[in-house]
Simulated assay, not measured.
Amino acid sequence: MRRCVTFWVFPLIAAACSYGTNTSGQVEQFTSDLSEEERACVEGRLLTGWDLNLADLDGDLSPEEEIAVDTATELCRLTANSSAALPPTDNENPQVSEELLQAPAVFSPSDTPPGEDPLLDQYWLECGLGKAKACDDLFYSAPRGSRYEQFAFSCGGRRNMDCSLLLGIDQPDGDLNPLTPPPGDDENLDRLWTRCSEGSTSACGELRLTAASGSLYSQFGTSCGARGTTYCTLILEYDGEPPSLDDLNPTMDPPGQDELLDQLWELCGNQDARACKDLAKHGPADSVYVKFGISCGGRSVAPCARLFADLQPANP
Rank of each mutant, 00 (worst) to 15 (best):
G157E: 08
S154T: 13
F151R: 09
V96N: 00
L261V: 04
F292R: 04
L248E: 08
R306C: 03
T6W: 06
A134V: 00
A85N: 05
P254N: 13
A280H: 08
P284Q: 10
C155Q: 07
F139H: 09
D278S: 07
I169V: 15
A85R: 08
S213I: 07
S154C: 08
E266L: 11
L34F: 05
G115P: 00
Y19N: 02
S62T: 15
C276K: 05
D278W: 12
N93W: 15
P113Q: 06
T230P: 02
G128T: 09
V106P: 00
P250N: 11
C4F: 11
E206P: 04
T194F: 08
T21C: 11
G49V: 07
Y289P: 00
Q26T: 05
I294G: 10
K281R: 12
E43M: 11
R3H: 10
C155Y: 03
P11S: 09
W8R: 06
E241M: 06
F7H: 03
C17V: 04
Q271V: 01
L100S: 03
C127N: 06
F308Q: 05
R208G: 05
T194D: 12
D56R: 14
C224N: 10
L52D: 02
T21D: 10
D121L: 02
S295D: 01
G225Y: 13
Y123D: 06
S146I: 11
N53T: 11
C4R: 09
E126I: 07
L166E: 09
R227M: 11
E38F: 07
P63K: 14
Y231V: 07
P254C: 13
S108H: 11
Q271C: 02
E116N: 10
E187P: 03
K133P: 05
G240H: 12
T23V: 09
E36Q: 14
P94Q: 10
M161Q: 14
P313H: 11
I67L: 13
P243K: 14
G214K: 10
P143F: 05
K281T: 15
T31E: 11
A280K: 06
D136A: 06
G130A: 12
D272H: 14
W265L: 07
S213M: 05
F7V: 14
L75P: 02
D137E: 04
N160K: 04
K281I: 07
S154A: 14
A203H: 01
E37S: 07
E37N: 06
N249E: 14
R274G: 11
S108A: 15
A152N: 03
R39V: 04
L119Y: 08
A68D: 02
L120V: 03
D60Y: 03
D117N: 15
P254F: 09
P94W: 08
E99I: 13
G184V: 00
I235Y: 12
H282D: 06
T71Q: 12
L179A: 15
P88M: 08
L12P: 00
L209G: 12
L216T: 15
G49N: 02
A16M: 07
Y148K: 14
C276L: 05
C127H: 01
G168L: 03
